[in-house]
Design a protein around this nucleic acid. Structure first.
Lengths: 113, 113
DNA sequence: CACTATTGTAAGTTGACACTTACGTAAGGA
DNA sequence: TCCTTACGTAAGTGTCAACTTACAATAGTG
């Protein structure tokens, strides 16, 4: 998951993911879409594979790559823990109110250290 | 958006985001949760702020940080372009079927180069 | 005004990583 | 078998970023 996020932080790898999202493509065809060398793309593909974001399938001398649905789902689930922000904030407000209620003798409105 | 994704690719910064997700905290209090030095955290906070993922509010000598809801929403929207994978794939299948139909004279089932 | 508290900024070091060229490897075809 | 095609791997290079310590800045406090 850590690996998946770091893999997606690179623009070239994101572009690769978009390319093979709906179409299975061999490494060479993928590389031809980028200004960098073919080995560079091969290394990117290894990173994406290790991160669980693409599948590799060998047919003859070719290697076909395609976005791995499960990997994307896992990443999505992981990331969604972050943007319940509004709910978390509401929860914090409620808890703060509860604390104020049970400690109404102290008048301490400092910012927490 | 590029910046936001790169900001989130660092584990320390993700932890910071979790910390200030539901609670506004000063820089020092944030730093005390990590094994690294306080300046390191200060630099991370700068990165997160420039990426639009946290808000900074100055009160006295302190600087209070909190996750920025809008920034998270933008990031989420950007990322969701990636995991319509199943739909995209279905679309590809349909398009492939249409092509097969309009070119039923050629029997070419090679893998695309 | 001195003094402390809270933080950012500067400068330098280290490690990671994206890239290059050169080479190795395995599958088919003539 | 030899050659080509399609690809990964090795080794080296340059850049970037995460970290350190040292210093500067600014707001309150006696």
């Amino acid at each position: 998951m850590e690996a998946a996020l770091k893999a997606m932080s690179d623009p070239t790898r994101r572009e690769i993911l978009r390319l093979v999202k709906s179409e299975e493509l061999p490494a060479g065809a993928i590389a031809s879409n980028f200004p960098v060398s073919r080995p560079a793309i091969s290394q990117h593909l290894t990173v994406l594979k290790n991160a669980g974001l693409i599948d590799e399938r060998r047919v003859g001398v070719k290697r076909l790559y395609r976005t791995r649905v499960a990997g994307m789902a896992e990443l999505k689930a992981f990331l969604e823990m972050f943007w319940d922000v509004r709910l978390e904030r509401l929860k914090a407000v409620v808890e703060a109110a509860a604390e104020t209620e049970e400690a109404e003798e102290t008048s301490d409105d400092d910012v927490r250290n």
